[in-house]
């Protein structure tokens, strides 16, 4: 699942728009964290535990959004936006939304300026006992 906040995906072409997908989560603050936070309010600076809490919650919201996109049969989400809002004292809502789309292959394999489709022959002519191709260099 490719997730980007641009309207297009570099290297891919969008062939179908599946619709809006969203994910949200509302998190309450932890009492122990609140105590350390109130101490931090005296000296200022970053509230590391809150940063972690919100980052974790936001990841959950994104995961819910991705799950919705998978249910729609999409393989990418474009134009993702985030919003955070204070719902009640001590609770925050994290919301992520975007457009689920289906994409087709990489358009970033230029073959001398022509519009020829990518080669149909698979890279590994995997007969029985043949050596599998080396895995693509990841990272």
């Amino acid at each position: 699942m490719i997730v980007v906040n641009t309207e297009t995906i570099p290297g891919y072409e969008i062939v179908a728009v599946k619709g809006l997908v969203q994910g949200n989560t509302i998190r309450a603050k932890h009492l122990g964290r609140d105590i350390t936070a109130s101490l931090k309010n005296l000296v200022g600076g970053e509230l590391t535990q809150y940063t972690e809490l919100l980052t974790e919650s936001r990841r959950q919201a994104v995961e819910r959004m991705i799950q919705q996109a998978q249910e729609l049969g999409a393989d990418a989400i474009v134009n993702v936006r985030f919003t955070t809002s204070s719902i009640a004292a001590g609770a925050a809502e994290l919301y992520a939304y975007g457009t689920a789309v289906t994409t087709v292959g990489s358009t970033a394999t230029p073959s001398a300026g022509s519009f020829s489709p990518p080669p149909a022959t698979p890279r590994s002519t995997g007969g029985p006992g043949s050596v599998p191709p080396p895995p693509p260099s990841v990272d």
């Binding site: 000296v43 919100l54 936001r58």
Partner: peptide, 18 residues
């Protein structure tokens, strides 16, 4: 000429001092 793309995030919570 990127081959693909991904979402990146950075966040921080900051408090003011007394």
């Amino acid at each position: 000429q990127p081959q693909t793309a991904t979402l990146v995030l950075g966040a921080t919570v900051i408090a003011s001092d007394y």
